[in-house]
Amino acid sequence: MFNLIRRDVILQKRQLLFFIPFILFFIVMNSHPVLTFLVASIFIPFNAYAYDEKAEANVLLNSLPYTRKEIIASRYLGAIVYMILAIALSSLALWLLDKPFTIKDIAFGIGLFLSFSALTFPMFYIFKQGYIFTIVLISFLVLAGIGPSIVLYLKDNLTPLIDFSLNLPLQALYTGAALSVLTGYVISWIVSQVIYQKKAF
Rank of each mutant, 00 (worst) to 15 (best):
R6N: 12
S149C: 13
S90I: 04
S188A: 09
A55E: 08
V136G: 04
D8W: 02
L77C: 09
I162S: 04
R14P: 00
L119A: 15
L182H: 07
I195S: 06
L179K: 09
L161C: 03
P169H: 02
V28S: 07
L16F: 03
D98N: 05
I187A: 12
S91T: 11
Y174P: 01
D105K: 03
L168W: 09
F22H: 02
F113P: 08
F22E: 04
L92G: 02
I20C: 00
L64W: 08
I20R: 00
F127H: 13
V9I: 15
D8A: 11
I87G: 05
T67Y: 05
N157I: 00
L161D: 06
P122A: 10
F19P: 10
V28D: 03
V9N: 02
S91Y: 04
P160R: 01
Y49P: 02
V194Q: 15
S41A: 10
P100Y: 04
G147A: 10
L158G: 13
D163C: 00
F133N: 13
E53C: 02
F124M: 06
W189M: 12
I10T: 07
Q129I: 04
L4F: 07
D105A: 06
S149N: 09
I84A: 13
L89V: 13
L141E: 13
A88G: 03
N47Y: 01
W95Y: 11
S117R: 06
M29W: 11
I135Y: 14
L85Q: 06
Y185M: 03
M29A: 12
L17S: 08
W95K: 01
F116R: 10
P45W: 01
L179Q: 08
L119G: 01
Y125W: 11
D98Y: 06
L92I: 08
P33K: 06
G130I: 04
I146V: 15
V136M: 14
R6K: 12
W95P: 00
L168T: 04
L141N: 12
S192I: 01
A73H: 05
S165A: 15
L17N: 13
L141M: 15
E56F: 11
L114H: 08
A55W: 00
Q171D: 09
T102K: 09
I110W: 02
F113Q: 09
